[in-house]
Design a protein around this nucleic acid. Structure first.
Length: 505
RNA sequence: GCCCCCAUCGUCUAGUGGCCUAGGACACCACCCUUUCAAGGUGGCGACGCGGAUUCGAACUCCGCUGGGGGCACCA
């Protein structure tokens, strides 16, 4: 690209670039445009969800675009991590990154030639101009302005440079940026689907950089350019971008789209401390929730509820439900605090709803990772009904089924001291004998036998059964006892009961 | 400092002038069920930030205040 003198000579107004005129098509097109600077953040994920849902609800298209113009902050593999997160949540995109489509490429650093052509045209048209101010100069003037109580924005220093001034700067070896020229007077109106009509006084808006000295555009330009180029009809994004929207409105206009897309600025998600979610304080990445044992169904449901509601009582939604019911009109305007408790409750709900085989399949990786590489899905599926209503997250499953997987269980010492009294051990000894006779080895038969013995001895159920539970599972808290014994099998159950019976009190 | 947004139980929210002595969910507490832990059931605790104005009547409208959040980069 060329900068400098060429801008000054092209004083005539260019014909509006026909490519940038793109009527709002009837089909809704939304996009999710993350920066590959890390993992998929829960706040970002919610933005993606709402954007996706809005497109689906209206039979439109959902586009995935990578905004990697801050090359300093790009993190290797993070685009893939974001994609993985979206796929895990079940948010499929119709075109874009990794999928291609009519507006390729969908990675901004691969679109530099387009941005250059467009910024050149903007300069020629008078909507933008090269600026040679150095960072140090800007900083100095900003401070001076602030000292006088003036806004810290750009002061328009390079707005009307003479040819001589430009030559002088060029001779110094300065590399210019390109700034977008904003009106000094009047007001800019932003129409927002969630916030309504907001007016900004143009006097508070200052010229901003759209092309860096290194030839890479800034977000405020590339995002707008691509939204025009990709025929995006609805921009759904976080509220943090709301104050930048008047700038964008002007760039849309300059790019030949006098009516910008519809905007929907979502309220921010804040932490339990009501402050912006922070990588340091909060668990933020969708992947982290995945490895902590949350189900995508729960995550989607929770995120949907975090700033949106259907009515005064419906709380459970599948992604498919949401694709039918979601609406931006019902998005809340106040920032929502991320509350893990509610997520936990939803996760427990969805965990309990899973078919045993499905539950087993989802829990298996967690069981394997917890030190039971030999665990079989079949056994897990059998144990599922006992475990499902007792866990909140998948990571808790191994702890619950460990006694079925370990050849030997280690008895909780404190529990043993409490429960393996003389009375308890006597019960265990007799129980072992009777258990040998139980036929068939089913929970019902085991229960009948043990309950018979307990009543015979005049013991309270607790006094009788807690020692058995400890013997069989190693703990005083476990899945239902008789069902567990059935699953464990006669041989292992008996061995454990006998062993505990013989232990010294 | 300047600009913008927001304001109902601890949290997510319903509520768009009378249906509200403000509804639901999560959390919490109690009870029931029960061999443990859960799950489930029943009940309870718990909110319209403050001050004006409009109105016969304000959670709902308007103004001010207070409080919270966001933004003012060659980050997005």
């Amino acid at each position: 690209m060329e900068l400098g003198g060429s801008y000054l000579t092209a004083k005539h107004r260019l014909q509006t670039n026909s490519r940038s005129i793109r009527r709002m098509s009837e089909t809704v097109r939304t996009r999710f445009a993350p920066s590959p600077t890390g993992f998929l953040h829960v706040g970002t994920a919610r933005t993606a969800l709402y954007s996706y849902l809005f497109a689906r609800r209206h039979g439109g298209q959902f586009v995935l675009r990578m905004e990697d113009t801050d090359t300093e902050r790009n993190v290797a593999d993070s685009a893939q991590a974001i994609v993985d997160g979206l796929r895990w949540l079940g948010l499929d995109w119709d075109e874009g990154y990794l999928k291609g489509g009519p507006h390729e490429p969908y990675v901004q650093t691969q679109r530099l030639d387009r941005y250059h052509a467009a910024t050149n045209a903007l300069v020629a048209h008078g909507d933008a101009y090269p600026c040679y101010c150095t960072q140090a100069e800007l900083e100095q003037r900003r401070k001076a302005a602030e000292a006088c109580g003036l806004p810290p924005g750009y002061d328009g220093h390079c707005r009307a440079l003479t040819v001589e001034q430009v030559r002088a700067y060029e001779a110094e070896g300065r590399k210019p940026v390109v700034r977008f020229r904003l009106p000094d007077e009047g007001e800019t109106v932003v129409e927002d689907l969630i916030r309504g009509t907001v007016r900004f006084d143009n006097a508070t808006l200052t010229d901003f950089v759209i092309l860096r000295a290194n030839g890479i555009p800034t977000y405020h330009f590339s995002a707008v350019f691509d939204d025009v180029d990709m025929a995006i009809t609805h921009v759904v994004r976080g509220e943090d971008l709301f104050p930048s929207t008047p700038r964008h409105v002007h760039v849309f206009r300059a790019l030949g789209r006098p009516t910008p897309p519809a905007f929907a600025h979502l309220p921010l998600i804040v932490g339990a401390d009501r402050r912006k979610l922070s990588k340091r304080r909060d668990r933020l990445s969708v992947q982290q929730f995945q490895t902590d044992g949350y189900l995508p169904e729960a995550m989607v449901n929770y995120l949907a509820l975090l700033g949106w509601s259907l009515d005064d009582h419906t709380e459970l939604f599948t992604l498919t439900d949401l694709e039918r019911l979601f609406s931006l009109e019902r998005v809340s305007r106040n920032p929502a605090a991320f509350d893990t408790k509610k997520l936990d409750a939803l996760n427990g709900h969805y965990l309990r709803q899973l078919q045993p085989a499905d539950f087993a399949a989802r829990a298996l990786p967690f069981v394997h990772a917890a030190g039971f590489p030999g665990a079989e899905p079949g056994l897990l599926a059998e144990a599922a009904p006992l475990v499902q209503e007792r866990v909140t997250r998948l990571v808790e499953v191994p702890g619950m089924v460990g006694f079925l997987l370990d050849d030997e269980v280690e008895l909780d010492q404190a529990a043993a001291a409490k429960v393996l009294t003389d009375e308890g051990r006597a019960f265990l000894a007799e129980a072992a004998k009777r258990l040998e006779e139980v036929e068939p080895w089913t929970a019902a038969a085991i229960e009948a036998t043990l309950r018979g013995l307990q009543e015979e001895r005049g013991l309270k159920p607790k006094t009788a059964f807690q020692p058995v539970r400890l013997a069989v599972t190693g703990r005083l808290v476990s899945p239902p006892l008789f069902e567990s014994m059935e699953l464990l099998g006669r041989a292992r159950s008996l061995a454990r009961v006998e062993r505990a019976a013989g232990l010294p009190g």
